[in-house]
Every structure is written in structure tokens, then in C-alpha cells.
């Protein structure tokens, strides 16, 4: 009985041990197999001014600091002081914030100037064909407004008569 049987058993044991052992070094080096799928990065539309990336829903304090002194700051208390929305005017665009959990988070960016373009290259005055060329077909169209959603951010491109005349980034409230 020892001959082949024993060898098969031994081989099986070795194979099992080897299989069981692979996760140990892999694990020790910090791989967490099970969690990989959950860690898909949250993507969102990002507006860029100079070197500063403005992400919807992010903390506004570092962004405002990086952008420097705004041309104008507008603050609006909501009814019964339940939050103070702020809109900072910069050259070419406006940055809106909304309080959330004690922090002013970025809630919107509104492009004002045809000279300013989105990171993907869209500008006010572009024809609507540029929209689909730069952002693809994953939009919803309503009354001439192209809306794209990525993560928790929404990009709304307003057109009148086929020409882009307003671009707005908003954070989608959860």
C-alpha cells in the first residue's frame, strides 16, 4: 500500500502546503486580495485653474488658498442660519462652496469667460459637436443642456442654438 498511494498522499500534502503558503508572503507584503475590488478609485470631473485642481465635494480651504485672493467673495446665509454658501469670483470662473459637517466643501464651478477652457479643452462658444468629441456619448440631454455624471460630480454644458454658452460643474448631493 505504501508505494504509489503514499507518493500520491505526499504529493497532495506538499501541493496543499504550497498553496496554503503562497498567501503568506503575498499577504505579508501588504496585498489584501479580498478588498481589491472595493477599492476602485472614485473618479470625478476636475476643473483646473493654472496648477490647481478643483474637485467637486473636496475641501475648499486648500483650493481657495492656492487660487489666491478672489476678485470678489459673496456669502449667503441660508434661512435661519442653517449654513452659509459662499461664491468666490476668480478671473474667468466662479467657485461655489457649501458647508458640510463643519467644512466648506466645493459645490460648484461656473465658467464665465470664453477664454477659459475645461481641462478636456471645451470653451464657451464651441459648437456642440465638440462636446461629444471631448466627453463622449454618456450624457443626458434636456432642453439643450448636456449633462455628464462621473462619480459624485456632474458636468452641465448649456447650449443655445448649438453653441456652448455655459459650463457648470456641480457636486451631486448624496
Amino acid at each position: 500500500m505504501r508505494g504509489i498511494r503514499g507518493k500520491v498522499v505526499a504529493a497532495a500534502l506538499v501541493a496543499t502546503a504550497a498553496l496554503a503558503a503562497t498567501p503568506v508572503p503575498a499577504y505579508a507584503w501588504g496585498f489584501s486580495f479580498g478588498a481589491k475590488a472595493e477599492e476602485k478609485a472614485e473618479e470625478s470631473y476636475v476643473f483646473r485653474s493654472g496648477e490647481t485642481d478643483i474637485v467637486m465635494g473636496g475641501d475648499s480651504a486648500p483650493v481657495v488658498r492656492a487660487l489666491g485672493t478672489p476678485l470678489d467673495t459673496f456669502e449667503a446665509d441660508s434661512c435661519a442660519y442653517q449654513g452659509k454658501d459662499k461664491i468666490y469670483s476668480y478671473s474667468g470662473f466662479e467657485l461655489g462652496t457649501h458647508p458640510d459637517g463643519g467644512v466648506d466643501v466645493i459645490s460648484s464651478v461656473y465658467v464665465l469667460d470664453p477664454a477659459v477652457s475645461t481641462p478636456e479643452g471645451l470653451q464657451l462658444g464651441d459648437p456642440k459637436s465638440e462636446i461629444t468629441k471631448l466627453y463622449g456619448k454618456g450624457y443626458t440631454l434636456e432642453n439643450g443642456v448636456y449633462r455628464y455624471v462621473k462619480g459624485s460630480s456632474e458636468l452641465a454644458i448649456y447650449t443655445t442654438g448649438g453653441i456652448v454658452d455655459a459650463i457648470e460643474y456641480t457636486a451631486i448631493a448624496e
Partner: peptide, 12 residues
Amino acid sequence: AGTFPAERRRSN
């Protein structure tokens, strides 16, 4: 009253 931000467009 001071200045106000630009009037934002709405889709609807």
C-alpha cells in the same frame, strides 16, 4: 447690497 455672482443657467 454689494455685487452678486453671475446668474447661473438652469436646464429646466
